[in-house]
């Protein structure tokens, strides 16, 4: 057990160094001459995050962009990778699936999360009720894979079923069904897994936002004769609009990037692949990093509409203020 002390010491040192660094920044910012104070504050507050982001994400993003125009041996091959992406037979299916994912997952998980957050707000046992929906988020990915195998598992007719859904089907007198093998339904069954996970995220964030809506406003609406639904639509919803945009955006981006669900449950077979899964497969399985990088760029293009939307929301917010 002696290792614990040594490890914790490392942690304490790291935290102390970090605290010293932040303290130093605050000191410099505070002592800055009045004329440059705003400028130095901006630099001081932003610099640590900016440096980390430049090194950790911007630089790799730039190298990835270059990589997208090279072949597996590293030679520049123009737009060949993009030609390949759009000429392979499954390309359109993969893109179609990605679109279905990015539309359905954010909508469904945000709706379920919001509904749940509202319904259990102030309910007895709120903490436990929240933990139940939060749990899928907290479970490891391997765990989630097995969980859904136990739900979708298939055995032929007449054999004892091991999957919950097929057991229900058989109990109702239906034939068992291979949920994951038949397109396009299988994509929906995979999406359900992602919704199941992400609802916990939207529920936690939205619940925190709902608690931030001033109670006076809700009460005022009630005194004006608004029913609960009207109170929700007219007071709560506008009050958490910012959080809703954040949740929708975050889940959309997470969905665009998700590949582990597809990879572990169908490996992209049976017409279930999505762009992020192809990216992973090409870069790390097939030894074609150029194609993987090209697919990453396509993901980037797909996220642009969301970026534009957020920029507009931001501008509106600034105008109101």
């Amino acid at each position: 057990m002696d290792f614990i002390g040594e490890k914790l010491l490392q942690v304490v040192i790291a935290l102390a160094v970090f605290a010293a660094l932040i303290g130093l920044i605050m000191l410099v910012v505070d002592r800055a001459p009045k004329s440059d104070k705003e400028k130095i504050t901006v630099i001081g507050f932003l610099a640590p995050a900016a440096i980390l982001l430049l090194v950790g994400l911007v630089y790799p993003a730039v190298t990835t962009s270059f990589l997208a125009f090279t072949d597996s041996s590293g030679k520049v091959n123009g737009v060949d990778n993009f030609v390949w992406i759009f000429t392979q037979p499954e390309a359109l299916v993969t893109l179609r699936n990605t679109v279905i994912w990015t539309v359905l997952v954010p909508l469904l998980s945000t709706s379920f999360g919001l509904a749940y957050a509202v319904f259990i707000d102030k309910a007895r046992g709120e903490k436990v009720l929240k933990a139940l929906v939060f749990m899928p988020m907290a479970i490891s990915f391997v765990g989630a894979g097995i969980i859904w195998k136990l739900v979708y598992d298939y055995r032929g007719p007449g054999i004892e079923q091991t999957g919950v859904l097929n057991a229900l089907r058989v109990a109702l007198g239906l034939d068992p069904k291979q949920f994951l093998l038949d397109a396009p339904g299988n994509t929906i069954f995979l999406i359900i897994v992602m919704v199941w996970i992400q609802t916990g995220f939207s529920m936690v964030i939205l619940s925190a936002a709902i608690k931030g809506v001033p109670v006076e406003l809700v009460e005022a609406a009630r005194l004006d004769g608004a029913n609960p639904w009207q109170q929700f639509v007219n007071v709560t919803l506008p009050g958490i609009r910012g959080a809703l945009v954040v949740v929708l955006t975050t889940i959309t981006i997470a969905t665009l990037k998700v590949f582990d669900i597809v990879r572990t449950m169908t490996a992209g077979n049976y017409d279930t692949s999505v762009v992020a899964n192809e990216m992973y497969t090409q870069a790390f399985r097939a030894g074609e990093p150029g194609r993987g990088a090209a697919l990453a760029l396509i993901l980037f293009l797909l996220v642009l509409p969301i970026v534009v939307y957020n920029a507009r929301v931001l501008r509106q917010q600034r105008e109101i203020r």
Binding site: A296, V307, L314
Partner: peptide, 23 residues
């Protein structure tokens, strides 16, 4: 300021896998 914020937000899309080797 706003352009900077939007840029940071956009970085969310950078796939982790692509950042590992340079890092």
């Amino acid at each position: 300021r706003d352009a900077g914020f939007i840029f940071v937000f956009t970085l969310q899309i950078v796939p982790l896998q692509m950042a590992l080797i340079p890092l």
